[in-house]
Design a protein around this nucleic acid. Structure first.
Lengths: 143, 143
DNA sequence: ATTGATATTGAGAATCAGTCTCAATTATGG
DNA sequence: CCATAATTGAGACTGATTCTCAATATCAAT
C-alpha cells in the first residue's frame, strides 16, 4: 500500500523506485513508530539489505515530501521521524527520565489551536506539541 | 537584576562571573526576544566587546541551566534561544515564508494540557507548541 | 595588594549529523 | 534490448557545536 503511494509519487516526478528505496521503506514500515536515521541505517545493514547512509538520508527526505513520514523532533543525536501514513495525527509526551514517547490526541486541543490561529490571521499548516516531563514509572522511581 | 541571578547561580557552583560572561549576558538582554548563537556572537564582536565562539556556546548552556534563557527550537541553521526571565510563558507560531516568530499565550491551552497530562498520569514539566504556517503578510504575497 | 588554587579563555582541532560530488551502475519506457 | 536519465556509494565537505590545553583571569584568604 505505502509502496504504491511512494511509487506513484516518484513516477509523477520522473524518479525511480529502486531496490534501495524499497528496502528503506520496508524497514521503516517495520517500526510502526518512531525511529532515528542512524538506527534505521544500521537495521538495514543487519538484515542483509543494502543502502548507504547517503541513500537513507535522501530517501527519508523523499518520504517526508511524499507525506508518508514526518519529522518529530531534532535532538542532539539527530532527527527523529515517525511513520505517519495511516496513523491519525497526534502529539507527543517525552519522558525526561527514560526517553519514552507517549502519543496522545485531543480533539479539543486541535480546535483550540485553530481558533488561536484564526485570531492572529495565521494560516497554520502543521504543528507539534511536545510535553516534556516524567512518565508514570519514572515518577515512582524518583520517590 | 539578571546579573545578580546569574552571579548567584555561578557562586553556588563555585564558578566565576567573568568579563566575557558579563558581555554575553548584556547582549542577550538587549535582544528582548529571540536570537541565535551566531548572530549573538557577531553582535558581541561588533560592539567591541570580546568573547570567543567557544565562550558564547559555553555561556548559553550555563544561562539555560540557570533558567534565564530557553531553547526555542533547533533549525538547520542552529539553535534559537529566547530570553525568558521576566517574560510570561508563551508558545510560538513560526512563519514558513519569512521566518517570523509570533508569540502567543492561551490560558485555555495551558489548562487543557494539564488535563491531558493528568489523564495519562504524566507529570509535565515544560512544553513547547510550535505552529508552522504562513503569517498574514506571506499569505498575501502568495496570492 | 600578593598569592595560590582553581576556573576560564581562545584558537584551532575534533566531532557529528547531514549534504554533496562524481564516476559507475541501474531502472524504465519504448 | 537500448538509450537515457536517475541513482548509488564512498568519501569529501559543510556547518553547528564541543573539546583540548596552555596561557590567563578570578577570588578568597592572607
Amino acid at each position: 500500500m505505502e509502496k504504491k503511494i511512494f511509487n506513484k509519487f516518484l513516477k509523477e516526478r520522473g524518479q525511480k523506485f529502486t531496490k534501495e528505496r524499497s528496502a528503506i521503506l520496508q524497514r521503516i514500515f517495520s517500526y510502526h513508530g518512531h525511529f532515528d536515521t542512524e538506527s534505521l541505517y544500521l537495521k538495514i545493514r543487519e538484515t542483509g539489505l543494502k543502502a548507504s547512509r547517503a541513500s537513507v538520508y535522501r530517501t527519508l527526505n523523499l518520504l517526508r515530501e511524499c507525506g508518508l513520514i514526518e519529522k518529530v523532533t531534532k535532538t542532539e543525536h539527530g532527527t527523529i521521524y515517525e511513520y505517519t501514513f495511516g496513523h491519525e495525527h497526534h502529539d507527543h509526551m517525552l519522558c525526561i527520565g527514560c526517553g519514552t514517547i507517549i502519543e496522545f490526541y485531543s480533539e479539543d486541543l486541535e480546535r483550540l489551536q485553530e481558533n488561536i490561529c484564526r485570531r492572529q490571521d495565521f494560516k497554520g499548516v502543521t504543528h507539534s506539541l511536545e510535553i516534556r516531563g516524567y512518565c508514570k514509572r519514572c515518577q515512582k522511581n524518583k520517590k
